[in-house]
Design a protein around this nucleic acid. Sequence first.
RNA 1: GGCCGGGUAGCAAAGUGGCAAUGCAGAGGACUGCAAAUCCUCCACCGGCGGUUCGAUUCCGCCCCCGGCCUCCA
Length: 458
Amino acid sequence: MQLYNSMTGRKERFQPADPNRVTMYVCGPTVYSYAHIGNARPAVVFDVLFRLLRQTYPQVVYARNLTDIDDKIIQAAAAQSVPTEVITERFAAAYNADMAAMNVLPPTLEPRATQHVPQMLAMIERLLASGAAYEAEGHVLFHVPSFPGYGALSKRSREEMIDGARVEVAPYKRDPADFVLWKPSTPEQPGWDSRFGRGRPGWHLECSVMIESHLGETIDIHAGGIDLKFPHHENEIAQSACAHGGRALARFWLHNGFLDIEDEKMSKSLGNVLLPHDLLQEVPGEAIRFALLAAHYRKPLNWTRAGLDRARHALDRLYLTLRRLPGEAMPAASPPAGILAALADDLNTPKAQAALFDLAREANSTDDPARQAVLKGELLAAGNLLGLLQIEPEQWLRQGSGGEPAIDSAAIERLLVERQAARAARDFELADRIRDQLAAEGVIIEDGPAASRWRLAG
RNA sequence: GGCCGGGUAGCAAAGUGGCAAUGCAGAGGACUGCAAAUCCUCCACCGGCGGUUCGAUUCCGCCCCCGGCCUCCA
């Protein structure tokens, strides 16, 4: 398997440090509101990586954290006059529900920042002891110049970082690049007692600590959105290296590209922030997933309504193929080689999707039952690797474009029987009238030799 | 300004130093009472200009355009 390693800037052959225990960590959401579609991209993309790794290695430990202590959470809680836990519980549950709707498997572990405060304080002590951190005005700060490798991931020199700085530097910092490990909390703010006073952790620390606690000092893969490369991941690298005698935090760094909305950047000020939570009201999560996987994960993805519709129709074609194949699938021993090869090449999901259509065409072209059974099994196995095609075709084809169908399936079936009788009597005027009537309700008819099938228009 | 990524058919999106995948849309055909579905055929000279090469969309340089990031709070 080849993966593009952001640290080295090229594709490298992926070889886990321990093939019997592959470790991977993805930066998860800060749970202060619903996840937006940009948050869904890494979850979906690295879910495919998780599935692929499980296919290859006996044990994959995949941790995706929940940031449940953060100033945005504190603000949201204050605005609604509720404890922060109310906010974080609500949106952690919403996040997991949204991800599940997009066929994102639960990670092996979902550690939370607030469950690791003692470990964070312990790491702070180690960093203080080694001289990589210092106290100032109730804060504990990481001293960036103490880590010579700083900037290696984002390919930035210190000069560039300082030149680019567009915010005022807090007066208590020894170096402009220094960042907070611990900061004081006011009495109203959530906080934990420590020898530095009552406070709370800085954002970057949690990932380093939770990786150390659950996965080890050096993990195989660390992934997240490209916006996290600097400073978040750079800071994680520095902390962990200084706490671990210079040993690297991760062997492979993967970053997914950003997402635009209808050719514009997604931002609150533009008011175009799309939430899967809302999209799921009108389209199946599987369609959102397909659309997110339609572009290579490192490339920018322009999210559009048209693209989402295309994803639905593409899935229609695949599910129609599955439905028309008679008989049971022959379970595939492993996913088809074409799909595996595409994904093994730095998660080339568009190529994998193309391979899905190649299978579908072949399946639609043959009438050999044995071959059909094999291809059906391969389609299902390939779909499973991508997190697609796992529901009954009838279920997919009859879920319509959101909301309840205008007529119930019993009524549809009755009309189909009536129409079949009309066709048998060569009363095509009546048959066409029934078809038009159903079409007006969004029901598409497919006539067969003996009976007709129906599905809802997408 | 610095760093990073991208510009491939109407749309979306892979890919390769020498026939440019795939899906949707479109054209024609087969099938069908007519459709739908399905199958077959057709539809791109790969942002611009130079360079390297027998040969570049693919490598190198410059330019143009688009996007992201450029730290603690927002």
